[in-house]
Design a protein around this nucleic acid. Structure first.
Length: 155
DNA sequence: GCCAACGTTGGC
DNA sequence: GCCAACGTTGGC
């Protein structure tokens, strides 16, 4: 069982939006970066634990805990010409972009990016690295435990 | 809205 | 295969 951090824009799917969805589950559509896609396609397993991170907003940070609840399958938005995430180079026969389903485990207290940067236990965490733009990053078990401690969640 | 950082594209 | 130009991300 592995740990991940996944960035969502709260204007799109916030932690509260996720909580309101059927089954509290969302398909992780819209990834258009090969490295992030490869994590979902090749490395994620059902049951992997996820830090649900709000980005592209006034106060970015971890908003909850989720888990991977499907294997990889084609992102449907890549085939829809009307969709923002349409990719004309992708076909249903040879889909380029994959997604997994992610289910809410629980909403937590909010741990801001600033608080994460201020926590020595999180030194070296990939999401904090300079210039990091990856929307999905693996999380070291020690960093996961440190985040749980900062959130006041049982490890 | 700005801009640093990074990924992708495409000419050569 | 190099690398300049361009587009995107994402914090501030």
């Amino acid at each position: 069982m592995a740990y991940w951090l996944m960035k969502a824009e709260p204007d799109d799917v916030s932690i509260d939006d996720l909580a309101a969805m059927p089954g509290q589950t969302v398909g992780w559509y819209g990834v258009r970066n090969y490295q992030a896609r490869n994590f979902m396609r090749d490395q994620m397993r059902q049951g992997d634990q996820v830090l649900y991170y709000h980005s592209g907003c006034a106060v970015p940070g971890v908003a909850g805990i989720a888990e991977v609840c499907s294997g990889p399958y084609p992102d449907p938005t890549q085939f829809d010409p009307a969709h923002h995430y349409y990719d004309p180079k992708s076909t249903p026969a040879q889909p380029r972009w994959q997604q997994v389903d992610v289910r809410l485990v629980r909403k937590t207290r909010f741990l801001s990016l600033a608080d994460m940067r201020a926590a020595p236990a999180l030194d070296g965490m990939l999401v904090l690295a300079r210039g990091n733009r990856l929307s999905i990053t693996p999380v070291e078990p020690s960093h996961w435990r440190a985040v749980m401690a900062l959130l006041g969640e049982p490890a």
